[in-house]
Design a protein around this nucleic acid. Structure first.
Lengths: 219, 219
DNA sequence: CGAAAAATTTAGACTAATCTAAAAATTTAT
DNA sequence: ATAAATTTTTAGATTAGTCTAAATTTTTCG
């Protein structure tokens, strides 16, 4: 269907346009570690294939078809990340690089079987949502606890990576789905967070915080 | 290290030279679905990289370095095959095609973790040996039961794919490691085998036979 | 506003992997 | 043993993805 290169462009445009709506040549070149001239060439090609909207000198954005393709690439990437972390015990930091290669193995049945094997996870080890087999992204207004500002109040909704050590730590700290918590401070040195929960103040690592998906409460 | 294309050449030469010692341009072209001219070009390239012995108009064979590289590719291929069959419930017939893509993900730690996750399997779902992390091939003079000629007598040494349904069928049929058996006939229609074991004649599917690794007895 | 800066595109070239057609070498078979 | 058939290599061309340098367009700001 698409070459590895095309897939990398589609995926990267998808990520960039989530933030900015429209993507520029330079931004894409920088992200993909390539030159603007190369990007322009590829944009013409993807435009000819109806995968994106493109007007020379203005940015570009994915067409519906392009977005659909991108979602399936993201799906594969995040499923493999989940596999690597959960089954092969890689740390969340390591999984991305390996998944960059695995994501290009396009085989519908493989992806579905992998999804089932993992128990249809909704989030990858970074807490990012995994599109389902129809390309639907589990939207949930969830944020990493690590991304909340000081003073924010939130309720724990989900845990990104369901591994034993992580779950053990949560239960030891009496943190559970539904717990309300408040961010009190963040160490500038190692990003350790102090949070108030169950009326006590405890501190948790940035690592752990990044796995806790919370719903922010209006303040 | 090597491009996907180079890896495919190395792997294919490895397989072909197991049978023939030396590999010819035409044989390789046919196997790789390409043209002889293309093969010659690639042979010059691999020869320049010291991966094979090559004298124009005579065949070629892998150098020690080339063989080592090939063994690691074969290792990855067969480990993924084992993963697909054992963990994702693919049939032995389906795994090869998918593993053709997965094998090109070169990441030393990934391969070692996968190997550990699978319990250091010695054979893939087809009963072919999986080179270990040093590239050593578990040699065992074992043959698929399905490949034995009529009349052959053999002893069961190993079972290629340790899945519950397969093991259940073996125990139901009272076939165990160490059992002596004799091949009595093979159906031309569906390759079902009749074998004599425990002094009884039972019939087993070609599927099952292909998972039973036997040591042929001198006749 | 309009000139300088920044961003983008075009032009022309390179590499890896492939092809077809023709030439060269080897093998086969009378 | 030599002519025919086969195999292999060479020559020249093509495509995808990339680059640098130059040209063009847009944006910024004095």
């Amino acid at each position: 269907m698409f070459s590895h290169t095309e897939e990398n462009y589609l995926k990267t445009i998808y990520h960039l346009q989530l933030d900015t709506g429209t993507v520029t040549t330079n931004a894409l070149a920088q992200q993909l570690n390539t030159k603007p001239a190369t990007v322009t060439d590829m944009m013409k090609k993807l435009h000819a294939k109806n995968l994106l909207h493109y007007t020379p000198y203005y940015g570009f954005s994915l067409s519906n078809e392009g977005k659909k393709a991108a979602l399936f690439i993201v799906r594969r990437h995040r499923l493999w990340e989940a596999f690597l972390a959960e089954k092969l015990a890689f740390s969340p930091e390591e999984v991305h690089e390996i998944a960059e290669e695995l994501e290009h193995v396009r085989h519908a049945k493989l992806v579905e079987r992998l999804d089932a094997f993992l128990g249809y996870p909704q989030f990858d080890p970074h807490g990012d949502p995994i599109p389902d087999k129809k390309g639907k992204v589990p939207q949930s207004q969830l944020t990493n606890l690590g991304d909340l500002p000081i003073g924010a109040v939130a309720v724990l909704q989900a845990v990104a990576q369901q591994t034993k050590p992580l779950l053990a730590q949560l239960s030891a700290k009496k943190i559970a789905i539904g717990s309300q918590l408040e961010v009190r401070s963040r160490s500038p040195f190692d990003q350790m967070l102090e949070i108030k929960i169950n009326n006590k103040i405890i501190s948790i690592s940035a690592q752990l915080a990044s796995h806790l998906l919370v719903k922010k409460q209006p303040s």
